[in-house]
Design a protein around this nucleic acid. Structure first.
Lengths: 123, 123
DNA sequence: AGAACGTATTGACAATCTTCGATGCATATG
DNA sequence: CATATGCATCGAAGATTGTCAATACGTTCT
């Protein structure tokens, strides 16, 4: 059970020096790193909008469609697509000249679960 | 309903040039930015671990406690604390020499809801 | 084969983020 | 008052990320 601040202050006044308390934790270092990696993959407006577009227009989205909507140039879009692909969140299928991108809902769901569980642990 | 890739390719072959399709969206620009800001606030291992510690040791955590546990120096911890404070996710109460930090579960819950809802929209 | 097109990659630059020594500030203690 | 302590801030350095012009690559169409 959590001690009160007042008790804590008293202990410290009595000479129990600062920082001897063993803190309780829920995440280990690796979990925190993983969760951070998950969040990083999502934490950019362009990437979020790409995911939104892919989620809402399944099967018919090529890079030039994205170019039309997003406020960045084509190499930048390709760059963010690559990051999302590396994270496993999207994939693509080439049809002639075009690359049709799609969302991998299974992977996104796993990530979503990790994020939601992680947040729940803090509340 | 989503068109198939094949139909899309056919249309483009017939001369309907690329990129005339109006994409469907769920997020507007502002929502994407907000969600990205929310995710950024969390997307660092040290900040996640700070939140974890504050969530698990309510009321008795001062900066030197964090220093004991985290792999970065005091100014860096203060820096991350400031970012979290600016995001509204934590706050502190000074008692003499010490600053006792605590988590603002209400704000965290709001952020968690936005994140969870945002993710759900993509699935 | 050659031209046109959609996309990926490269390379350079700019912006942002992370870290920490040095320092300042406020409070407590002798 | 002088000193010690805990924390915040400043300023600089390094690392990472985001952006885009230029270019390369593979495909399609003449």
């Amino acid at each position: 059970m959590a001690k009160t601040i007042e008790l804590h202050v008293e202990e410290r006044k009595r000479g129990t020096r600062c920082c001897e308390s063993l803190l309780k934790l829920q995440f280990d270092v690796e979990e925190a790193r993983q969760l951070s990696t998950d969040l990083q993959a999502l934490a950019h407006p362009v990437r979020l909008r790409i995911l939104d577009i892919l989620a809402s227009n399944e099967g018919v989205v090529c890079v030039c469609d994205l170019q039309e909507t997003l406020p960045v140039k084509q190499p930048t879009i390709s760059h963010h697509l690559k990051l999302l692909r590396d994270a496993g969140l999207i994939d693509c299928e080439r049809q002639g000249l075009w690359a049709y991108y799609f969302i991998r809902r299974d992977v996104l769901r796993e990530l979503g679960t990790r994020v939601t569980q992680g947040l729940k642990a803090l509340m």
